[in-house]
Design a protein around this nucleic acid. Structure first.
Length: 855
RNA sequence: GCCCAAGUGGCGGAAUGGUAGACGCAGGGGAUUCAAAAUCCCCCGAUGGUAACAUCGUGAGAGUUCGAAUCUCUCCUUGGGCACCA
């Protein structure tokens, strides 16, 4: 018996797959296709074990589908634009392009030894001019179709680095590099009109049958359709242009609980008041120094300033309400102005208590009429409440009923109108950065904004740039900006904004169907391969990436890039896998007190404590978190592959946790996976050496177990229950290793085992297959199908409960009538003891499952 | 703060209304061996008991049900997202 050597066997089979071209996807209308795609990686430099998990899951599906006769497309590419490349260039010199392509080479080199069934001939990176040139063509068509426009928007501005900061680059209101207080600055920005599709993007969620319910719910909440009331308050003592303040509210029913009016610091009225009031100017400035992130705004202390202006209540002109500027009101949502009802909104209540504004109850709970003081009363909209002199005449009604009644009242009495609003905002795609897809337009002093001609695409990024000065290198490039107006032929300037990297990832799946086409898509290919049948990626993309991709497909439909077949929904099925986590090892630098993070490979564990291998110093163990470069809690797959082989790494990442949940990487788990692979190989070798014989009474038992395993593993793979499938394979391996069945049956069993394991451990599977004399490659062998006749069970074990507690069990023929089961159950010693001579109240027999005796 | 999840032995987890803890890890005992590694066999939620068995037990508390890890409500903790990280 030879020892199993992954180092020899894995490259051998990878070469065999390559030579036979099994993974090359060729369009063939006569065959059923299956498109499986994992979210493509950002080339950060090193593959980590989380990537391995992600691609292994896709690979299991791809290989399984190949074995069941599908023509499979399983491509790979690189989400290659983005900030880290520029950050690296700033930190250590070099060019983002070189950094990126070097990383891609490295990661591809780490990925290939995993033995993934990828069609590498379709590979591309989004920073290839061939890709982003086609993206520019799409952009121009979107522009022509009216799906792109320009407007002013607020950005985080770092006044020292003279650059726009991403939200993650703002730390406690300061720029991460400069430490300068961040300002909110208004810039002209490009936008996609995703809001045109709000209704469609929302209602089409219902048709996404094979998406996780939680993702669909998150998207629906994100789009945030609401029915509310828009109306205006007449002002008193306001500047002439502001005779009225428009407000939008989803709770117009609480209008009699109104306490004050709140407006955003960016509201035109708030801005106009700055002219005469240094206090208001200072307050608004303060609001504008917060980051633009909604989470930051919500977490910040709620502040406000009284403008001195008042408004009349629309239902009672005598009733005057003060107008406050408040830092928690977004100019982007609704009208940038609200009326506050502290009794029924916690945030308004905290604000009212802080500034001693009135709290007026609009309704009470039916059984408790205590007025609100520090905790707002916010019942479900479907709960009936008692209204205080409601103007619609309602007395006891639900919030929802009151909202409808109020909108009807407002429309009938002409003081407001019902409006359907969406939370979803248009997608700002402008980035003031170098390493992105250039927006292919120019600014002409005569013609204004002019799209570049398609024949001049791609508008390529210039290579001669440097990152040693603040700001965007495209802005200060000596001649890249200068161009000729595509309309009048005069001198013009190129747009220096590049596109959000989410644009790159919003159509790459379509490009994979024809990656070398001279147009963004090729009708025959997109028509055959789309949609993606199974998409796999992190749940962190549940909203933005997936929503943008759904929008993009709608845009591509409108602009004729996907016409024959409706691909408005790109992903038929979605699976969101969990992350691979690892404990974080942290010490503090003695020099400057900064946190230092250590790689798991440099740390030794002993008695629940961790020590550095080189110095022996103890390190702090922080709770497991997503593996990330910044925390160094990463496990390098190269080391795992060198030590154990790819099959071990693949088997482990699938085995321990359910795929949608996070998995904690442990060295002992990897060791166990490795042992199992060696064990299966040794069983295979033992079977080969068995003497030839003819059948045995143990054959049936082994074959029945084999067919049950085929059934369970197939179901496990199809339902993403990889961990369950693997547990089943362990159990079958245990059975086989102890089996006394004939050589013929054992050989049959081990070859079936190899087939069932082949999606997870393809190299081992091929080796067993060839060792046992299987025909051709196992990847080309048809998937085993269970024999129904081998699954039939003649008797079953029924547990007997007394009052819901298990007391006994009986072994009965499968189709014994209930009356006989009941009689048998009651005759059980344990049941008789519990009954103590009394008659049972009731006996529940659930056929095939359980018996419960109620006493 | 808002939206969405998750919480089960020492650990990863199984069971989606019907025997809680499959399978794996760690641990304990044994076989083999001159010895070790490797391998194989047995045990392994807690408490009480020689045992049979009994009681308790799925983050906390309440509820629905003949029966709840599973459904409902409230709370706690952890994770993801919050529109310029990808």
């Amino acid at each position: 018996m030879s020892r199993y050597s992954a180092a020899e066997i894995e490259p051998k089979w990878q070469k065999a797959w390559d030579d036979s071209g099994v993974f090359k996807a060729i369009r063939d209308e006569s065959r059923r296709k299956y498109y499986v795609l994992e979210m493509f990686p950002y080339p950060s430099g090193k593959l980590h074990i989380g990537h391995v998990r992600n691609y292994t899951m896709g690979d299991v599906i791809a290989r399984y589908k190949m074995s069941t006769g599908y023509n499979v497309l399983h491509p790979m590419g690189w989400d290659a634009f983005g900030m880290p490349a520029e950050n690296a260039a700033m930190a250590s010199g070099g060019h983002p392009k070189d950094w990126t392509y070097k990383n891609i080479d490295q990661m591809r080199g780490q990925m290939k030894p995993l033995g993934l069934s990828i069609d590498w001939s379709r590979e591309f990176a989004t920073c290839d001019p061939e890709y982003y040139g086609q993206q520019q063509a799409l952009f121009l068509d979107f522009l022509e179709e009216g799906l792109v426009y320009r407007k002013n928007a607020i950005v985080n501005w770092d006044p020292v680095d003279m650059t726009v900061l991403a939200n993650e680059q703002v730390e406690n209101g300061r720029g991460w590099r400069s430490g300068a207080l961040v300002e909110r600055r208004e810039l002209a920005q490009w936008f996609f009109k995703i809001s045109d599709f709000s209704e469609d993007l929302l209602s089409a969620i219902d048709k996404l049958d094979n998406w996780p319910a939680k993702v669909k719910l998150m998207q629906a909440n994100w789009i945030g359709k609401s029915r509310g009331l828009q109306f205006s308050f007449e002002t008193i003592d306001a500047p002439d242009e502001f005779k009225e303040i428009d407000v939008y509210t989803t709770r117009p029913d609480t209008l009699l609980g109104a306490s004050f009016i709140g407006i955003s610091a960016d509201h035109p009225l708030a801005r106009s008041l700055e002219v005469n009031s240094p206090e208001i100017t200072a307050f608004n400035q303060g609001c504008r120094q917060m980051s633009t992130s909604e989470a930051d705004m919500e977490k910040a202390e709620k502040n406000g300033i009284d403008t001195g202006i008042r408004v009349r209540h629309p239902l009672n002109p005598e009733w005057e309400l003060p107008v406050w500027i408040a830092n928690f009101i977004l100019m982007d949502y609704g009208t940038g102005a609200i009326f506050a009802c502290p009794a029924h909104d916690q945030r308004d209540l905290d604000f009212a208590n802080k500034y001693e504004l009135p709290v007026i109850d609009a309704f009470f709970s039916i059984d408790n009429e205590a007025p609100v003081s520090t905790k707002a009363f916010i019942p479900q909209k479907s709960e009936k409440v008692k209204w205080v002199n409601h103007f619609t005449g309602l007395d006891v009604a639900t919030g929802q009923e009151a909202i409808y009644a109020t909108i009807a009242h407002a429309e009938a009495h002409e003081w407001g109108k019902g409006v359907t609003n969406f939370r979803l905002r248009d997608w700002g795609l402008s980035r003031q950065r170098y390493w992105g897809c250039p927006i292919p337009v120019m600014h002409c002093p005569i013609c204004g904004i002019v799209p570049e001609k398609k024949k001049n695409l791609p508008v390529k990024l210039p290579n001669d740039v440097s990152f040693d000065l603040p700001g965007n290198p495209l802005d200060r490039h000596p001649n890249w900006r200068n161009c000729t107006c595509a309309l009048c032929g005069g001198a013009a300037l190129r747009e220096t904004d590049t596109m959000d990297t989410f644009v790159d990832s919003s159509w790459y799946f379509a490009r994979f169907t024809a990656p070398r086409a001279e147009t963004p898509t090729e009708q025959k290919d997109i028509n055959y391969w789309m949609n993606v049948d199974q998409y796999i990626g992190g749940v962190e993309h549940a909203i933005l990436h997936l929503l943008y991709s759904r929008f993009f497909c709608r845009g591509m439909q409108k602009t004729g890039h996907a016409t024959e077949k409706n691909i408005s929904e790109p992903f038929n099925a979605l699976f969101t896998q969990g992350m691979v986590t690892h404990a974080i090892y942290k010490t503090t630098s003695e020099e400057d007190g900064r946190a230092l993070y250590h790689y798991p490979e440099d740390v030794k564990l002993k008695d629940g404590k961790a020590f550095l291998k080189n110095s022996g110093n103890e390190v702090n163990i922080e709770p497991s978190a997503k593996m990330s470069k910044s925390k160094n809690n990463v496990v390098d797959p190269e080391m795992i592959i060198a030590q154990y082989g790819a099959d071990t790494a693949r088997w482990f990442v699938l085995s321990d946790s359910p795929p949608e949940r996070d998995v904690e990487w442990t060295a002992s788990g990897a060791e166990a996976a490795h042992k199992h692979i060696a064990r299966v190989w040794s069983i295979c070798c033992k079977i080969k050496e068995l003497p030839e014989n003819t059948g045995s009474e143990n054959d049936l038992e082994l074959m029945q177990e084999m067919h049950r395993t085929i059934r369970d593993v197939t179901l496990g793979i199809e339902s993403f229950g990889f961990n369950a499938a693997i547990a089943r394979l362990y159990a079958f391996t245990n059975k086989l290793s102890k089996s006394k069945a004939s050589k013929l049956s054992q050989r049959n069993a081990v070859m079936t085992l190899a087939q069932l394991m082949s999606p997870m451990t393809p190299h081992l599977a091929e080796e067993i297959w060839s060792h046992q004399g299987g025909q051709g490659l196992i990847i080309n062998a048809p998937w085993p199908v269970e024999d129904e006749s081998m699954l039939v069970q003649t008797s079953i074990i029924l547990p007997i409960q007394v009052n819901g507690k298990r007391r006994s069990e009986i072994n009965v023929p499968k189709d014994l009538p209930n009356i006989d089961i009941e009689r048998l159950a009651l005759s059980q010693e344990a049941v008789r003891r519990s009954l103590d001579g009394n008659k049972p109240k009731k006996v529940i027999v659930v056929p095939g499952r359980i018996v419960n005796v109620v006493i």
